[in-house]
Design a protein around this nucleic acid. Sequence first.
DNA 1: CCTCTTCTCCACCCGCGGGTCCAGGTGCGG
DNA 2: CCGCACCTGGACCCGCGGGTGGAGAAGAGG
Lengths: 209, 209
Amino acid sequence: MVVADDQAAVREPLAAVLALAEGIEVVAAAANGTEVLAAVAAGPVDVVLMDLRMPVMDGIETTRRLAGEHPEVAVVVLTTFADDDSILGALGAGARGYLTKNAGRQDITRAIRAAAAGQSVLDREVQDRLLATVRFKTPAPAQPLPEDLTPREREVLALIGQGLPNRGIAERLFISEATVKTHINNLFAKAGIRDRPDAVRRAIASGLA
Amino acid sequence: MVVADDQAAVREPLAAVLALAEGIEVVAAAANGTEVLAAVAAGPVDVVLMDLRMPVMDGIETTRRLAGEHPEVAVVVLTTFADDDSILGALGAGARGYLTKNAGRQDITRAIRAAAAGQSVLDREVQDRLLATVRFKTPAPAQPLPEDLTPREREVLALIGQGLPNRGIAERLFISEATVKTHINNLFAKAGIRDRPDAVRRAIASGLA
DNA sequence: CCTCTTCTCCACCCGCGGGTCCAGGTGCGG
DNA sequence: CCGCACCTGGACCCGCGGGTGGAGAAGAGG
């Protein structure tokens, strides 16, 4: 992993402590974004622990570039700031975790291991903020889809939501158009969907499209 | 902690495996939400690993009650479904983590420890979906509608977006169905809309529905 | 006055959508 | 072994959706 923070008084002890943790190997310590990119280009890196406020290239921009050029690298943000712009900016740029600097050593190592495993760890206040913005944008939860839809039926519904005709769905799923119709008839009955436009709306409202 | 899942074939092995993990003590295994509430009321519990789809009382409702009556209890969701309704419902109800059932033992134990420490762990796809909804709600529509749509055409498009058939649109606007078809043909040509499902998506994306 | 736009309406055609009924194959649990 | 859920497929029917072509009325503006 790579540790990135512009303040040496933070970066050096942090790198030293993390190097002691089992299963974590600190291969580089960077003072800004360009140094991070150089370190990632130099050798295989799986995780970057990144401060947001850095000179030359800040953490968000660095995260965005990493997501584009090295999507296999997981970025965990460690910063003092937890405002909406920073949180949404970093996570929107592709960060896989977001910690504030009152996080303990245990919290940081756990977040690093989770990020390496494809999970994402957020501080509690960060998650609360994220959810607050989400719920503000979603006033109408609508009627949720019934649980007894089969995976195949959800798949078909998602494709309907993307505007595909039955023939297109059949080609995408490598099945016949007759089978697509059967799935559609079943899921319409289960979910109380009247016709195709209704299905599109439900699919979008449920996030399947 | 408490393990909650209606399927004994999932619940029992899960509880057994987790009990072996260091620092984790499974004090109860519940088959539905009421059993979870009873277990929490009986003794001090810090974490509940919860399935969403359960009889009697489902995971989301249980999470909501726990958040109200026992806010010190951290809920980690473990379910097969990762649609927006489930994710937003559970996290909005106060869940502190969200895992899908392809998560491994390591992933689950890590999420439990994180939740106990006040952090929140999300599967990667879950975080992606959460962010997608955030970013989907914030910016303007992708491809905007052309300006040369007549007011009547916009009106018709909005009603299509609400799922009405041509006959319903005609009745709502006090015009004949033939006229509705004419408007639809015109606005489809102007806006580059292929068919009705496409029109529904455009109407929603443009805020007309 | 004439033109252009917009809204209104009609007739025709046909392809896709949706309903209905039926049925074979598979994997899983009782 | 049998039942059940799920995915798969086929046949038929009919109504709505969408395309085409045409047409008349009303208002805006040159």
